[in-house]
Simulated scan of single mutants.
Amino acid sequence: MLIRRETPADVPAVRAVTAAALARAGASLPVEVTLLDALRGTRDAWLPALSLVAAGEQGQVVGHVVRTLTAHRPELRGTFAYAEPFRAVSA
C-alpha cells in the first residue's frame, strides 16, 4: 500500500471510497461525499497537501484521509476525517 497526495484524477475514486465507507441504509449518498466536494471548492478550508489517498497494489484508491481548516466550527479545528471501507476486522 502506498500513501500519497490526492490528485484531481483521484476525486471520483475518493468519492466512491467515502460513499462506501459511510453508507447508511435508506440514504442515497452520504453527506460526507458532498461535504468533500464543497470543501474542495474553498480556498479557506481545503488543504490540498493534506488530502491523502491509500493506493492498493494495482494503484486503485482504497482509502482517504483529509485535513481541512474548520474556521466555522472552532471546536473542530485540527480534527481529521477519514474513510476506509476495505479494512480487515478481527473477531
Rank of each mutant, 00 (worst) to 15 (best):
A71T: 08
V31D: 15
A54P: 12
L36M: 07
T34F: 04
R40V: 02
L69H: 12
V89P: 04
A71E: 11
I3H: 13
L52V: 10
L2C: 08
H72N: 11
V53H: 00
A20M: 04
R4V: 14
V89D: 08
A54Y: 13
I3V: 15
R67Y: 12
F80V: 14
V53M: 01
P48T: 06
G59A: 08
A54Q: 13
L76A: 14
A19G: 07
S51H: 06
R40G: 01
L47S: 07
T7L: 15
V14N: 06
V61R: 04
D37G: 03
V89K: 09
L22A: 07
L29F: 00
L69R: 12
A9T: 12
V14K: 05
R4W: 15
A83E: 01
P48H: 08
L39Y: 07
P8G: 09
E32W: 05
T18K: 00
R40C: 02
A23M: 03
A45T: 13
D10A: 07
D10V: 07
F86M: 03
G41E: 09
T34H: 06
V33I: 04
E6W: 12
V31A: 15
P12E: 02
R87G: 08
G63E: 09
T42W: 12
R5Q: 15
R40A: 03
A13I: 04
L47Y: 10
M1N: 13
A27P: 00
R5I: 12
A27S: 04
A88H: 10
V62W: 11
E6S: 14
L39G: 00
T68H: 03
R77S: 11
L29G: 01
D44A: 11
F80P: 01
G41V: 01
R77D: 15
T42K: 12
S51G: 00
L2K: 15
A54E: 14
A27Y: 04
V17L: 10
S51R: 01
S28C: 00
A55Q: 06
R43T: 15
A23W: 07
L36E: 01
L69Q: 06
A88S: 09
V17W: 10
A23K: 06
V17S: 10
Q60R: 14
G56R: 03
R87A: 14
A38Q: 08
R24M: 09
E57W: 03
T42C: 07
D44F: 08
P48C: 04
V17N: 11
L29W: 02
V65W: 06
R77Q: 15
G41L: 04
G59N: 10
T68V: 09
P48E: 07
L52N: 07
R67C: 05
Q58Y: 13
P12W: 01
V53S: 01
G78V: 06
R4L: 14
V65N: 05
I3W: 15
T18G: 01
M1P: 13
V53T: 02
G26Q: 05
R77T: 10
V17P: 09
A81V: 11
A13W: 03
A81P: 03
L29A: 04
R4Y: 15
P30Q: 01
E57I: 06
T68C: 04
A55P: 06
A9D: 15
A45G: 06
E84H: 12
G41K: 06
P8H: 10
A91E: 08
P85S: 02
A91P: 08
P30C: 01
G26H: 06
A23S: 08
R40T: 02
V62M: 13
V61I: 14
P30W: 00
T7F: 13
V61N: 05
V31L: 13
L52R: 10
L2Y: 11
